[in-house]
């Protein structure tokens, strides 16, 4: 069970993830605003962050870079409905834990989160 941060520009998409992951016993905080999410990471240890690739102000990849600066041990799972090789490579270079393509099945996401938690600080 771990502290998970979810950042998605669409509040509802984030809430869905929250409900799903809380059922697994995780503690989940959802944000739609990049700054608020970063502030949260500065103040609280976050083990796993799930980022949508399209956000409001930054791209998910930029956000990943910011998170890794603040909290290198946070495992970041990128979630996108618009996969490109460039974002995938960039995410990998920046140390993303995983790069997932929507639509993603509930079980698959649960598995990814579980393995990210299990992996421990990277």
């Amino acid at each position: 069970m771990g502290h998970i941060l979810v950042l998605d520009d669409i509040a509802d998409a984030g809430l869905m993830l929250k409900r799903l992951l809380e059922r697994q016993g995780h503690q989940v905080t959802v944000f739609t605003e990049e700054e608020e999410a970063l502030a949260h990471i500065r103040a609280h240890p976050v083990e796993v962050a799930i980022l949508d690739i399209r956000l409001k102000k930054m791209s998910g990849v930029e956000m990943l870079e910011e998170i890794k600066k603040i909290s290198p041990s946070t495992r970041v799972i990128m979630l996108t409905g618009y996969p490109t090789l460039e974002t995938a490579r960039r995410a990998q270079q920046l140390g993303a834990f995983d790069y997932c393509i929507k639509p993603i099945e509930k079980e698959e996401l649960e598995e990814k989160v579980a393995s990210a938690l299990k992996a421990g600080p990277t």
């Binding site: 520009d9 409905g81 639509p103």
Partner: peptide
Amino acid sequence: HRLNELLA
């Protein structure tokens, strides 16, 4: 794209 993401 946001609507589509929800509609999907």
